[in-house]
């Protein structure tokens, strides 16, 4: 069974960030493997460990994002491809077009993606890629099994969970609720240094990255409107509980 996992390097959303003149200032040293992608890597590894097969990771990004690709290899992926670009403003459409060009002549059973990137939370690239490759897909997977050459995907829907059979070749986008991604051990880290990584450019895939005109753009950033800090009640539990209940009724009219 051959898995490809599409991964992305993202800023750590837990790191402090600042906005100045509409620009987002972030600590560029705190770039990490997107948590949803880490779950996709983990799940592919678990399935190939059980049923046999290979896991290859692919990433679009700048050269300095290589450490993130190495992390996926240290987790246990067999090899990787780095599609190098320094262009920082690519949107989901651009990412999915580059990936679609990469996958055009590849053989695989399943492509796994994180369901969204944790910085933009857009969640578009996976299904855009599936549509371009004309693959059946399932999004927001919270569990995967493999039976009779099909992935049995547990998908979290609006109300309940759906158990969906996805034939090969197919694409699945993963939630981080499906597993706890392994932390690479020393052996994994040492081995990852010897694992093959192909470095290619979008131009190698027939895409002129400089001339891509984006149809969605970020115009700037602004702070969330601050919530006024309300009242904090400390003291006798019985008293403060009853007081807040009365205030909810009198002040907010919510009872």
């Amino acid at each position: 069974m051959k898995f490809y996992v599409c991964i992305k390097q993202v800023p750590d959303v837990n790191a402090p960030l600042q906005i100045r003149d509409g620009e987002l200032l972030q600590d560029r040293d705190r770039m990490i493997l997107n948590a949803y992608d880490a779950s996709a890597v983990e799940e592919s590894l678990v399935l190939t460990e059980e049923h046999g097969g290979k896991v290859e990771v692919v990433m679009v990004g700048p050269d300095k994002a290589r450490e993130t690709l190495r992390k996926a290899l240290a987790m246990g992926a067999d090899n990787g491809t780095m599609i190098l670009t320094d262009r920082p403003d690519l949107d989901s459409t651009a990412y999915s077009r580059i990936l679609a060009a990469f996958f055009k002549d590849k053989d695989y059973d399943f492509i796994c993606c994180g369901k969204q990137a944790q910085d933009t939370d857009a969640g578009l690239t996976g299904s855009m890629l599936a549509e371009q490759l004309e693959l059946p897909y399932v999004s927001n997977a919270v569990g995967l099994n493999y039976e009779n050459e099909k992935l049995i995907v547990r998908r979290q829907g609006d109300a309940g969970q759906e158990i969906i059979e996805l034939p090969s070749p197919g694409l699945v986008t993963c939630s981080n609720d499906m597993n706890e991604p392994r932390i690479p051990n020393l052996k994994g880290i040492m081995q990852s240094k010897k694992k093959p990584v192909d470095s290619i450019t979008p131009e190698d895939l027939g895409i002129d990255i400089g001339s891509i005109e984006l149809s969605t753009n970020i115009l700037g950033f602004e702070e969330m409107p601050e919530r006024e800090t309300g009242k904090k009640f400390e003291g006798d539990p019985d008293e403060i509980a009853r007081e807040v209940a009365r205030l909810l009724d009198q002040e907010a009219g919510l009872v």
Binding site: R227, T229, I240, A245, L248, A252
Partner: peptide, 27 residues
């Protein structure tokens, strides 16, 4: 508590029973 309008500092097991009782009364 940074985003709450009404923050109750206390053990939920001690806070909720009187809170529920008071809400019932108000209702």
């Amino acid at each position: 508590f940074d985003i709450t309008d009404y923050g109750i500092v206390g053990d939920l097991y001690k806070v909720l029973p009187p809170f529920i009782e008071e809400l019932k009364k108000l209702k």
